[in-house]
Design a protein around this nucleic acid. Structure first.
Lengths: 227, 227
DNA sequence: TCTATTTTTTAGACTAATCTAAAAATTTGT
DNA sequence: ACAAATTTTTAGATTAGTCTAAAAAATAGA
């Protein structure tokens, strides 16, 4: 009894619920939040949620909210796996820029073929992260936890490695491009402004840059002294 | 005023009409034939055809039949281009076999991104034909005519090149695999049985094979003396 | 030609996914 | 605690795509 057929629309709801669930740690997800995320009406969400509950993809309590079942979570992780693998393909093979791939991957993630994803994974060299540093779930839906932190949480002069972004907007990604800042680059904190919490850093031991507190909160880094 | 949005379903009808139109040269396509090709009911086809006619994708005359407009033909050729490019990707890059790719390409052909197809085309080296030897329309919907003929139309001992198949069933393609017969191989006609029109041939100057008249009709070849 | 067969269309109904407007339940503020 | 505001659900309708059954048109046969 494998995961029954899910329509594109259902998959989009499942993904939205998954994202919201992992944002608002574990408390049930609200109808309004799903509606906003999917640019749809709350009434529509209520309808869809009832259908997903019938399929045992979510648990639903009226006026309270919704949570994915383990079956629903598995579907969500599979879609995310496909989305991120396709993003790797688009950037590494087709030479798209990292700010251009999201919408195309949103389409490709619904293609339904286990063999395709397995062969794509191999073709890409079984990547562990996507072009934005997000971890790619494995074929069983397991997602290795990473111990990255926002640059803004670093409180002393130290060296760290740029390993992800906490904001996926094209404008932000394009901004990082103008700085020549790429995943894997070393960021050396040179000074922290105690008034506005802005950062002066050196990238790859070469050029100096300035990050506002906001930008620093969107830049995820790994420090040597892992978890 | 570019090609307005077409749903997956509409695209499948457009493709079916295109294929039938090119099969039954130029006479209008019948409701029943479309229904059969899409495994749907004639009544459903009538409904859809009316919608396509409203969108100026087909011309439709009640009880007579349907034909694509130039707009409809352009859409069809674009879908076919996408289908065949994805097939090249699946076979050449992901190492699928030529009998395994059709269903996956049926899904991928509906992905909507001009940039994606343009970059995919470049990534694949701008192939002219797909893994079955079918010509890939260019980005303007132009499809270069090829002068291939079925092996069954060859009437004298001569050499030719295997360049396509007139039957895309997996079972037939797998059969050709067992013979180690691949696109580009030389087929040398050694004798033609005047009783049952079967062929004895030599492939790549190496091994001899026997083709029944039926199989010979499914094997497309190019002879040196192309027009 | 005129009846029988086949093809096509119409009519009416269903499902998935959506909407708006109104009702019901929950949460918030004082 | 209870009225006001917010959130959620229900009710009723719409659209795309599909179906079955019946009616209408076209084709074929004698």
């Amino acid at each position: 009894m494998e995961t029954a057929y899910t329509s594109h629309t259902e998959e989009n709801y499942i993904k939205a619920i998954f994202k919201l669930q992992n944002l608002t740690k574990e408390t049930a997800v609200s109808t309004n939040d799903i509606a906003e995320r999917l640019s749809t009406q709350p009434a529509t969400v209520t309808d869809m949620i009832k259908r997903l509950a019938e399929k045992k993809i979510v648990t639903y309590k009226k006026y309270y909210g919704v949570l994915l079942t383990s079956k629903g979570e598995k579907i969500a992780l599979d879609i995310i796996r496909k989305h991120r693998l396709w993003e790797v393909f688009l950037v590494n093979k087709l030479k798209f820029k990292w700010d251009e791939v999201h919408d195309i991957a949103e389409q490709l993630e619904h293609i339904n073929s286990v063999e395709l994803i397995s062969k794509l994974d191999d073709f890409l060299g079984n990547p562990k992260v996507d072009p934005h540093g997000d971890v790619i779930p494995d074929k069983h839906g397991k997602m290795k936890q990473v111990n990255s932190v926002p640059l803004s949480s670093i409180t002393k002069k130290q060296s760290c490695v740029f390993c992800g972004v906490a904001n996926h907007e094209a404008r932000f990604l394009q901004y990082l491009d103008t700085l020549n800042l790429n995943l894997g680059n070393t960021i050396q904190v040179q000074s922290i402004n105690s008034f506005d919490s802005s950062y002066k850093v050196k990238i790859n031991n070469k050029h100096s840059e300035f990050f506002s507190a906001q930008i620093a909160s969107y830049i995820l880094v790994e420090t040597g002294n892992g978890k």
